[in-house]
Protein backbone atom coordinates (compact mmCIF):
# COMPACT_ATOMS: atom_id res chain seq x y z
CA UNK A 1 0.00 0.00 0.00
CA UNK A 2 1.36 3.36 -0.98
CA UNK A 3 0.22 6.53 0.72
CA UNK A 4 1.30 10.12 0.87
CA UNK A 5 3.57 9.24 3.78
CA UNK A 6 5.39 6.16 2.58
CA UNK A 7 6.03 4.01 -0.48
CA UNK A 8 5.30 0.33 -0.96
CA UNK A 9 7.70 -1.24 1.59
CA UNK A 10 10.79 -3.02 0.37
CA UNK A 11 12.53 -5.92 2.18
CA UNK A 12 14.22 -3.65 4.77
CA UNK A 13 11.02 -1.76 5.50
CA UNK A 14 9.06 -4.99 5.81
CA UNK A 15 11.45 -6.24 8.49
CA UNK A 16 11.28 -2.90 10.29
CA UNK A 17 7.48 -2.90 10.16
CA UNK A 18 7.38 -6.41 11.63
CA UNK A 19 9.60 -5.32 14.52
CA UNK A 20 7.37 -2.30 15.11
CA UNK A 21 4.31 -4.55 15.06
CA UNK A 22 5.81 -6.82 17.73
CA UNK A 23 6.79 -3.81 19.86
CA UNK A 24 3.25 -2.40 19.57
CA UNK A 25 1.71 -5.69 20.63
CA UNK A 26 4.07 -5.93 23.61
CA UNK A 27 3.51 -2.34 24.76
CA UNK A 28 -0.29 -2.32 24.36
CA UNK A 29 -0.63 -5.86 25.69
CA UNK A 30 1.56 -4.94 28.64
CA UNK A 31 -0.60 -1.92 29.49
CA UNK A 32 -3.83 -3.91 29.26
CA UNK A 33 -2.33 -6.76 31.31
CA UNK A 34 -1.22 -4.29 33.98
CA UNK A 35 -4.73 -2.80 34.24
CA UNK A 36 -6.33 -6.24 34.48
CA UNK A 37 -3.68 -7.28 37.02
CA UNK A 38 -4.44 -4.24 39.19
CA UNK A 39 -8.18 -4.94 38.92
CA UNK A 40 -7.62 -8.55 39.98
CA UNK A 41 -5.20 -7.71 42.81
CA UNK A 42 -7.59 -5.18 44.33
CA UNK A 43 -10.35 -7.78 44.24
CA UNK A 44 -12.60 -6.24 41.59
CA UNK A 45 -13.39 -9.64 40.07
CA UNK A 46 -14.59 -11.28 43.28
CA UNK A 47 -18.12 -12.66 43.25
CA UNK A 48 -19.04 -10.48 46.22
CA UNK A 49 -18.56 -7.27 44.21
CA UNK A 50 -20.67 -8.51 41.31
CA UNK A 51 -23.48 -10.11 43.30
CA UNK A 52 -25.59 -6.95 43.36
CA UNK A 53 -25.91 -7.09 39.57
CA UNK A 54 -27.54 -10.52 39.66
CA UNK A 55 -30.79 -9.36 41.29
CA UNK A 56 -33.86 -9.06 39.03
CA UNK A 57 -34.86 -5.80 40.76
CA UNK A 58 -31.47 -4.30 39.88
CA UNK A 59 -31.91 -5.45 36.28
CA UNK A 60 -35.28 -3.73 36.21
CA UNK A 61 -33.77 -0.53 37.59
CA UNK A 62 -30.97 -0.63 35.01
CA UNK A 63 -33.52 -1.03 32.23
CA UNK A 64 -35.55 1.88 33.61
CA UNK A 65 -32.45 4.09 33.80
CA UNK A 66 -31.49 3.14 30.24
CA UNK A 67 -34.97 4.09 29.10
CA UNK A 68 -34.72 7.43 30.92
CA UNK A 69 -31.40 8.12 29.20
CA UNK A 70 -32.88 7.10 25.85
CA UNK A 71 -36.02 9.18 26.30
CA UNK A 72 -33.96 12.27 27.19
CA UNK A 73 -31.88 11.54 24.09
CA UNK A 74 -34.92 11.02 21.83
CA UNK A 75 -36.71 14.19 22.92
CA UNK A 76 -33.52 16.28 22.75
CA UNK A 77 -32.57 14.81 19.35
CA UNK A 78 -35.94 15.55 17.73
CA UNK A 79 -36.13 18.99 19.34
CA UNK A 80 -32.61 19.95 18.26
CA UNK A 81 -33.28 18.80 14.69
CA UNK A 82 -36.39 21.00 14.58
CA UNK A 83 -34.59 23.93 16.22
CA UNK A 84 -31.63 23.44 13.90
CA UNK A 85 -33.87 23.54 10.81
CA UNK A 86 -35.66 26.69 12.01
CA UNK A 87 -32.39 28.44 12.91
CA UNK A 88 -30.79 27.53 9.60
CA UNK A 89 -33.78 28.99 7.75
CA UNK A 90 -33.32 32.13 9.82
CA UNK A 91 -29.59 32.29 9.08
CA UNK A 92 -30.25 32.03 5.35
CA UNK A 93 -32.85 34.80 5.45
CA UNK A 94 -32.53 37.71 3.04
CA UNK A 95 -33.50 40.13 5.81
CA UNK A 96 -30.67 41.22 8.09
CA UNK A 97 -33.20 41.86 10.85
CA UNK A 98 -33.79 38.10 11.06
CA UNK A 99 -30.36 36.87 9.98
CA UNK A 100 -28.25 38.81 12.49
CA UNK A 101 -30.19 37.92 15.68
CA UNK A 102 -30.31 34.26 14.62
CA UNK A 103 -26.58 34.32 13.96
CA UNK A 104 -25.94 35.81 17.41
CA UNK A 105 -28.23 33.17 18.95
CA UNK A 106 -26.37 30.25 17.35
CA UNK A 107 -22.94 31.72 18.14
CA UNK A 108 -23.96 32.35 21.75
CA UNK A 109 -25.31 28.90 22.46
CA UNK A 110 -22.39 27.21 20.78
CA UNK A 111 -20.00 29.13 23.04
CA UNK A 112 -21.65 28.30 26.39
CA UNK A 113 -20.68 24.88 27.84
CA UNK A 114 -23.68 22.52 27.87
CA UNK A 115 -23.16 21.82 31.56
CA UNK A 116 -23.43 25.52 32.41
CA UNK A 117 -26.64 25.67 30.32
CA UNK A 118 -28.03 22.71 32.28
CA UNK A 119 -27.13 24.44 35.55
CA UNK A 120 -28.82 27.66 34.40
CA UNK A 121 -31.95 25.66 33.66
CA UNK A 122 -31.90 23.57 36.83
CA UNK A 123 -30.47 25.90 39.50
CA UNK A 124 -30.92 29.32 37.93
CA UNK A 125 -34.49 29.39 36.68
CA UNK A 126 -36.57 27.93 39.57
CA UNK A 127 -35.92 30.90 41.95
CA UNK A 128 -37.19 33.17 39.16
CA UNK A 129 -40.58 31.47 39.30
CA UNK A 130 -40.09 28.61 36.85
CA UNK A 131 -41.72 25.93 38.98
CA UNK A 132 -42.00 23.10 36.45
CA UNK A 133 -38.24 22.59 35.97
CA UNK A 134 -37.17 18.97 36.44
CA UNK A 135 -33.72 17.50 35.86
CA UNK A 136 -35.12 15.81 32.73
CA UNK A 137 -36.35 19.12 31.31
CA UNK A 138 -33.09 20.88 32.21
CA UNK A 139 -31.08 18.22 30.35
CA UNK A 140 -33.39 18.25 27.32
CA UNK A 141 -33.59 22.05 27.01
CA UNK A 142 -29.84 22.55 27.40
CA UNK A 143 -29.03 19.80 24.89
CA UNK A 144 -31.59 21.21 22.45
CA UNK A 145 -30.26 24.77 22.61
CA UNK A 146 -26.66 23.67 22.10
CA UNK A 147 -27.13 20.96 19.50
CA UNK A 148 -29.85 22.90 17.69
CA UNK A 149 -27.34 25.72 17.20
CA UNK A 150 -24.65 23.31 16.00
CA UNK A 151 -27.06 21.56 13.62
CA UNK A 152 -28.17 24.94 12.23
CA UNK A 153 -24.56 25.50 11.16
CA UNK A 154 -24.42 21.98 9.71
CA UNK A 155 -27.56 22.56 7.61
CA UNK A 156 -26.26 25.93 6.48
CA UNK A 157 -22.90 24.44 5.50
CA UNK A 158 -24.77 21.74 3.56
CA UNK A 159 -26.81 24.28 1.66
CA UNK A 160 -23.84 26.49 0.91
CA UNK A 161 -21.91 23.52 -0.44
CA UNK A 162 -24.54 22.96 -3.14
CA UNK A 163 -23.68 24.13 -6.65
CA UNK A 164 -25.16 27.57 -7.32
CA UNK A 165 -26.84 26.29 -10.46
CA UNK A 166 -29.33 24.34 -8.34
CA UNK A 167 -30.84 27.50 -6.84
CA UNK A 168 -30.62 29.42 -10.10
CA UNK A 169 -32.42 26.65 -11.97
CA UNK A 170 -35.19 26.78 -9.37
CA UNK A 171 -35.63 30.52 -9.76
CA UNK A 172 -35.42 30.18 -13.55
CA UNK A 173 -38.45 27.91 -13.68
CA UNK A 174 -40.38 30.43 -11.59
CA UNK A 175 -40.14 29.03 -8.08
CA UNK A 176 -40.28 31.33 -5.08
CA UNK A 177 -37.57 31.29 -2.42
CA UNK A 178 -39.69 29.08 -0.15
CA UNK A 179 -40.14 26.50 -2.90
CA UNK A 180 -36.45 26.61 -3.82
CA UNK A 181 -35.51 25.95 -0.20
CA UNK A 182 -38.13 23.30 0.44
CA UNK A 183 -37.90 21.39 -2.83
CA UNK A 184 -34.30 21.92 -3.93
CA UNK A 185 -31.91 23.06 -1.22
CA UNK A 186 -32.97 21.25 1.93
CA UNK A 187 -33.51 17.76 0.45
CA UNK A 188 -30.04 17.81 -1.10
CA UNK A 189 -28.34 19.46 1.88
CA UNK A 190 -29.84 17.01 4.35
CA UNK A 191 -28.79 14.01 2.28
CA UNK A 192 -25.28 15.36 1.84
CA UNK A 193 -24.93 16.17 5.54
CA UNK A 194 -26.63 13.02 6.86
CA UNK A 195 -23.43 11.44 8.30
CA UNK A 196 -22.54 14.70 10.07
CA UNK A 197 -26.10 15.06 11.38
CA UNK A 198 -26.12 11.55 12.81
CA UNK A 199 -22.72 11.95 14.41
CA UNK A 200 -24.05 15.11 16.04
CA UNK A 201 -26.85 12.95 17.43
CA UNK A 202 -24.17 10.71 18.97
CA UNK A 203 -22.99 13.86 20.76
CA UNK A 204 -26.52 14.37 22.08
CA UNK A 205 -26.53 10.81 23.40
CA UNK A 206 -23.12 11.22 24.99
CA UNK A 207 -24.03 14.52 26.58
CA UNK A 208 -27.12 13.10 28.30
CA UNK A 209 -24.49 11.73 30.71
CA UNK A 210 -23.93 15.33 31.87
CA UNK A 211 -27.39 15.01 33.45
CA UNK A 212 -25.58 13.04 36.16
CA UNK A 213 -24.16 16.32 37.48
CA UNK A 214 -27.59 18.02 37.67
CA UNK A 215 -29.11 14.98 39.46
CA UNK A 216 -30.93 13.54 36.46
CA UNK A 217 -31.49 9.87 37.37
CA UNK A 218 -29.89 8.30 34.34
CA UNK A 219 -27.34 5.51 33.93
CA UNK A 220 -24.39 7.15 35.68
CA UNK A 221 -26.57 8.23 38.60
CA UNK A 222 -27.55 4.62 39.11
CA UNK A 223 -23.93 3.53 38.59
CA UNK A 224 -22.84 5.73 41.48
CA UNK A 225 -25.75 4.56 43.63
CA UNK A 226 -24.96 0.86 43.21
CA UNK A 227 -21.21 1.51 43.34
CA UNK A 228 -21.66 2.96 46.82
CA UNK A 229 -23.54 0.01 48.33
CA UNK A 230 -21.28 -0.88 51.26
CA UNK A 231 -23.13 -4.16 51.97
CA UNK A 232 -21.92 -5.42 48.60
CA UNK A 233 -18.34 -4.18 49.07
CA UNK A 234 -18.79 -0.76 47.35
CA UNK A 235 -18.55 -2.25 43.82
CA UNK A 236 -17.82 1.08 42.08
CA UNK A 237 -15.53 -0.49 39.45
CA UNK A 238 -17.87 -3.39 38.53
CA UNK A 239 -20.64 -0.79 38.45
CA UNK A 240 -18.64 1.47 36.12
CA UNK A 241 -17.94 -1.53 33.88
CA UNK A 242 -21.63 -2.52 33.72
CA UNK A 243 -23.05 0.96 33.12
CA UNK A 244 -20.15 2.08 30.97
CA UNK A 245 -20.69 -0.89 28.68
CA UNK A 246 -24.34 0.06 28.22
CA UNK A 247 -23.44 3.67 27.40
CA UNK A 248 -20.65 2.75 25.01
CA UNK A 249 -22.75 0.14 23.22
CA UNK A 250 -25.57 2.65 22.70
CA UNK A 251 -23.15 5.23 21.29
CA UNK A 252 -21.31 2.68 19.16
CA UNK A 253 -24.62 1.50 17.67
CA UNK A 254 -25.56 5.06 16.71
CA UNK A 255 -22.07 5.71 15.33
CA UNK A 256 -22.34 2.53 13.27
CA UNK A 257 -25.54 3.93 11.73
CA UNK A 258 -23.67 7.14 10.88
CA UNK A 259 -20.85 5.16 9.28
CA UNK A 260 -23.31 3.03 7.31
CA UNK A 261 -25.13 6.11 6.00
CA UNK A 262 -21.81 7.67 5.05
CA UNK A 263 -20.69 4.62 3.08
CA UNK A 264 -24.07 4.39 1.38
CA UNK A 265 -24.17 8.05 0.47
CA UNK A 266 -20.63 7.89 -0.90
CA UNK A 267 -21.79 5.21 -3.32
CA UNK A 268 -24.87 7.18 -4.35
CA UNK A 269 -24.00 9.43 -7.31
CA UNK A 270 -27.11 11.55 -6.73
CA UNK A 271 -25.70 12.98 -3.55
CA UNK A 272 -23.59 16.06 -4.03
CA UNK A 273 -20.10 15.65 -2.73
CA UNK A 274 -19.59 18.02 0.16
CA UNK A 275 -16.27 19.76 -0.11
CA UNK A 276 -13.81 18.03 2.26
CA UNK A 277 -12.99 21.41 3.80
CA UNK A 278 -16.61 21.77 4.97
CA UNK A 279 -16.57 18.35 6.55
CA UNK A 280 -13.16 18.90 8.13
CA UNK A 281 -14.30 22.13 9.75
CA UNK A 282 -17.38 20.41 11.04
CA UNK A 283 -15.39 17.50 12.40
CA UNK A 284 -13.67 19.65 14.95
CA UNK A 285 -16.93 21.29 15.88
CA UNK A 286 -18.53 18.01 16.76
CA UNK A 287 -18.19 17.37 20.42
Amino acid sequence: MSSVLYDVPGPKAIVRNRILAVVTVLVVGGMLAFIIYRLAVTGQFTAEKWRIFTFPLVHQNIIDATLRTLSAFAVAAVASLVLGLLLSIGRLSDHAIIRVPVMLFTELFRAIPVLILMMIMYYGLPPLGVTFMTPFLAVVIALTLYNGSVLAEVFRAGIESLPKGQTEAGYAIGMRKSAVMLLIQYPQAIRAMMPVIISQLVVVLKDTALGFIVTFQELLYLAKFYGGQVTYGSPIIPSTIVFGTIYILLCLALSAVAKWVEVRSRRNPRITKVAPAVQATNQGEIK
Binding site: T42, D207, A209, L210, K224, S234, T240, F243, G244, L252
Partner: peptide
Protein backbone atom coordinates in the same frame (compact mmCIF):
# COMPACT_ATOMS: atom_id res chain seq x y z
CA UNK B 1 -13.50 4.61 18.23
CA UNK B 2 -13.75 3.38 21.79
CA UNK B 3 -13.02 6.69 23.53
CA UNK B 4 -14.97 8.77 21.02
CA UNK B 5 -18.07 6.77 21.85
CA UNK B 6 -17.55 7.13 25.58
CA UNK B 7 -19.17 10.14 27.26
CA UNK B 8 -16.54 12.37 28.89
CA UNK B 9 -18.64 12.23 32.06
CA UNK B 10 -18.19 8.44 32.13
CA UNK B 11 -14.41 8.75 31.70
CA UNK B 12 -14.22 11.28 34.53
CA UNK B 13 -16.51 9.05 36.59
CA UNK B 14 -14.08 6.18 36.15
CA UNK B 15 -11.02 8.22 37.05
CA UNK B 16 -12.61 10.09 39.96
CA UNK B 17 -14.38 7.13 41.62
CA UNK B 18 -12.78 4.01 40.15
CA UNK B 19 -9.09 4.90 40.01
CA UNK B 20 -8.63 5.31 43.82
CA UNK B 21 -9.86 1.70 44.21
CA UNK B 22 -6.94 0.46 42.09
Amino acid sequence: NFIRNTPLTLLMFFFAFGYPKL
